[in-house]
Design a protein around this nucleic acid. Structure first.
Lengths: 244, 244
DNA sequence: GCCGATTTGTCCGTATGTATC
DNA sequence: CGATACATACGGACAAATCGG
């Protein structure tokens, strides 16, 4: 957890925005004012503001100021944001999440798995199938593949709790980024069985496949997350970049 | 189009990465080296690198360096990235896109529309229904609502070309950011009819609803984009933020 | 294990450009 | 036009992480 100055300012402004200290579309104090408020340099306040822009909380306009555009969203379903574990997401969504491990095994990547995951053929992997419940409903079916050489010591017991917690706090792996692709796929019998979906309602499922990298730039995880369509919701804030 | 120094450096490095000037997992030249290469300050190269991180092209590691983690993806379908018009997306995907306007009308937001779009009741709007074809196949059905007071002068003819082009280059509207939510919904008869989907294959559709803001912080567009599931693909790079 | 060199991360101060009002 | 606001760019300083000797 960074105690950097810009991060403290970022958190403070973010909280003020969430607490309606600024009304919708109101301009925040100018950079110069914020410099005095937080007793720091211009670069530092600008950096904090930059984070808020990324979050979609404010927008900056040259010559005008920084405008609050935060509107709390109505949470009707499970919302996905950055990289986070299921436990973290559940906590953020103020819901009660539990996990059931359907399968836990070690395997060696054959040609089919290699092609699907991007791990080289012959790699030693953990394969884990887990079902995530939110408020008692089975909503997400995860297929995880972890590099055995990096995520060593994974067990069924850990998988029942939080794998990310184990990777970060026990193995001290630094998780850096995750490339994700979202698609819609046809439902499988496994999906149907475990997530209790009536195919007359939905014969599709929302799928997020992700490749996650550690600080050595090594992809150590491939995951396919299958979400019940009626509870799936992915949220995003896109910035318009000048068309070059 | 910004001619800023950092942007030139960003584009140059990005192109070098795409052209395999650096092999996968190789470290880029250090910041100090880049400073000499581009004859600029450290802040400037750091900013360029920051953009590459956002794109998921590289990852930075304190004490180590900047590592190339770019892997070209196999383009099997229409890929969505930032805020871009259909025309821009089609060009980026190297595909031939055309548009057919199904409906063009002016209307006043009633209670139902107000609730759905977030525009206040009584607002004057343009409502446009468009079908986007890629390489001859109807893949996306768009329902656009534009604020008449801001997107004034919109016409069916413009909608057949590029609305964004008109907004940016004729009306000089600055498009800043777009809040997007992705869900999976049941297919409607309209979807079925226009996108030629067999409901035995798919009875769902990928939906992206977005609210787009201009530089005055005003939401001037609400759009619901309905994508044929078998060609839909949304791509993302998430950065792990320290859990606070 | 320590030390020094290298590399990225944070922070400061300043100057100039550009858009808005 | 001047004042104010954010955007870009420079240069310098120190901290923190990594790596090799």
């Amino acid at each position: 957890m960074p105690k950097s100055k810009y991060h403290v300012i970022y958190k403070d402004l973010k909280q003020k925005i969430e607490n309606k200290s600024f009304s919708y579309r109101e301009l925040l104090p100018s950079e110069n004012t914020l410099i005095e408020t937080y007793d720091c340099s211009r670069n530092t306040v600008r950096r904090a503001i930059g984070e808020l822009v990324k979050d979609g909380y404010v927008q900056t306009m040259q010559g005008k100021g920084v405008r609050n555009i935060y509107q709390p969203i109505q949470q009707t379903s499970f919302t996905i944001g950055g990289i986070e574990s299921f436990k973290e997401s559940a906590a953020r969504n103020h819901q009660n999440g539990t996990t059931r491990v359907l399968q836990f095994m070690e395997l060696t990547a054959d040609e089919k798995i290699a092609k699907k995951t991007g791990f080289p053929e012959g790699t030693q992997l953990y394969y884990i199938q887990r079902l995530h419940y939110l408020d008692g409903k089975p909503l997400i079916l995860n297929h995880n593949y972890f590099l055995k050489s990096i995520a060593s010591g994974l067990s069924r017991e850990i998988a029942e709790q939080s794998i990310y917690d184990y990777l970060e706090h026990t193995l001290h792996i630094t998780i850096v980024n995750s490339k994700r692709i979202m698609t819609v796929e046809k439902i499988t019998q496994i999906d149907e069985k475990y997530m209790e979906i009536n195919t007359n309602d939905y014969n599709c499922i929302a799928v997020i496949t992700s490749q996650t990298f550690n600080s050595d730039g090594i992809m150590f995880e491939f995951t396919q997350s299958r979400h019940r369509p009626d509870y799936f919701r992915f949220q995003d804030n896109a910035l318009r970049r000048p068309v070059i």
